[in-house]
Amino acid sequence: MKITAIVNGISSQLDTCLEELNSVSENIQVRITQNHGDATLFAQDACNSGTEFIIVCGGDGTLNEGVNGMLMSQNPKCLFGLYPIGSANDYAHVIGGGTISQLIACAKNKTQESVDIGVIRWSAQQRYFCNISAAGIGAEIAATFNARRFKMGIRLNYYSAIIQWLSMYSAPNLEIRIDGKSLRGKTLLSAIGKGVYAGNGLALLPQSELNDGSLGLTIATNVGVIDFIRFQGRLKKGKRINDARVQYLKGTQIEIQVIDGTLAIDADGEFIARIKKGESISYSILKNELNFVRPNTDTRVTI
């Protein structure tokens, strides 16, 4: 089996990961990222060169880049596995991961699961995502976290960014359409996706499932700092917030149009766009698009 490992070159666990890759008997091509976009190029090149199994060694951002590269290649059905060593491993909390040896054994035995992938379209652009796309304050928080990720601890970085943006964010006026139903108003956060967790373990989409053919949509309106402090216990436990300002929905086609203001967008924690008044962004689903290798044991990451 031809195997390629794409490794996040700035991971704090880089040395441990490389040691494990070198310890297995299989001949693995190892590509180490240095710049934004490297994982996309590496995955596309690997799939076009006949790789049968890609192991992404990183977090949500590295996985997102790798999946986009694979789906842009001539071999978009390559097997995928995750060795979670990122600063945020929110998707791994649901999909699981495994040691390098476990992942290779499962790939050889075809122990895999087909999972859905989300598609984001805006202007003339397109981006795939595995976990969650945040529109609004969530994307601003992610951008702030990524800009200062080496300046403080992961949890402190996330929570300080959340509190900072909750205290200063001006919510845009949006029209959100989900399977023909229209919702209008000022919206703090719209979270769309297949995963459950974002922001280092906050359950923004507890209603989501990996392969049910639908997208989860959570909408939050005028939630403040005190509300977040009050809600975070339930968010960390994967439970819904019982508050009229938070709605949990599911659908297959979602479109967001900016009526007034600007709207930041991310994909799996990576900032991708900012759209303004009169512009829109759409979300759809690719059913069972990603062939994900999952060990039989429960290897979900505890956050």
Score class of each variant (00 low, 15 high):
Leu174Tyr: 04
Phe53Tyr: 15
Asp227Gly: 08
Ala105Ser: 14
Asp266Asn: 15
Asp298Ala: 10
Asn27Lys: 15
Leu215Ser: 04
Lys194Gly: 01
Asn8His: 13
Thr221Gly: 03
Arg245Asp: 01
Ser87Leu: 11
Ala264Ser: 15
Asn296Tyr: 13
Val56Ser: 14
Thr262His: 15
Ala198Ser: 15
Pro172His: 01
Gly136Lys: 09
Gln44Arg: 10
Gly50Asn: 08
Leu103His: 04
Tyr159Val: 04
Met1Lys: 11
Tyr128Trp: 11
Arg127His: 08
Phe271Lys: 15
Gln247Asn: 10
Gly269Asp: 03
Glu289Tyr: 09
Met70Asp: 02
Lys108Glu: 15
Ser87Tyr: 09
Leu183Gln: 10
Met70Arg: 05
Glu175Gln: 14
Ser280His: 11
Thr33Trp: 10
Gly86Asp: 00
Asp179Lys: 00
Tyr158Ala: 06
Asp45Asn: 10
Glu113Phe: 01
Lys239Val: 10
Leu183Thr: 11
Tyr169Glu: 06
Phe231Ser: 07
Glu19Ile: 08
Ile10His: 11
Leu202Met: 08
Gly224Met: 08
Ala135Met: 14
Ala105Met: 12
Leu286Pro: 02
Asn200Pro: 00
Ala107Ser: 13
Thr99Asp: 10
Asp60Glu: 00
Gly86Ala: 03
Arg300Cys: 12
Tyr197Met: 06
Gly251Val: 03
Ser25Leu: 07
Arg155Met: 14
Val258Lys: 04
Ala135Asp: 08
Val94Lys: 05
Asn200Tyr: 13
Leu79Glu: 10
Phe292Pro: 00
Ile120Ser: 01
Gln29Thr: 14
Thr187Gly: 03
Asn89Thr: 00
Gly233Cys: 07
Asn222Gly: 07
Tyr248Glu: 01
Ile265Asn: 06
Ala43Gln: 09
Ala46Cys: 09
Glu20Gly: 09
Asn35Asp: 13
Leu166Pro: 00
Asp90Gly: 00
Ile141Val: 13
Cys17Val: 06
Glu65Tyr: 05
Gly153Arg: 07
Ile100Tyr: 08
Lys237Glu: 12
Thr187Val: 10
Asp298Val: 05
Asn75Ala: 12
Ser208Cys: 08
Asp298Tyr: 05
Ala198Asp: 08
Lys77Cys: 05
Ala143Val: 00
Gly50Gln: 09
Asp212Ile: 03
Arg245Trp: 00
Ile162Arg: 10
Ser123Leu: 14
Leu71Asp: 01
Ala92Lys: 00
Ser182Thr: 13
Ile226Gln: 09
Thr33Phe: 08
Lys287His: 06
Asn222Cys: 06
Ala134Met: 13
Gln164Val: 05
Ser114Trp: 09
Glu270Lys: 10
Val196Ser: 02
Ser73Trp: 03
Arg148Met: 12
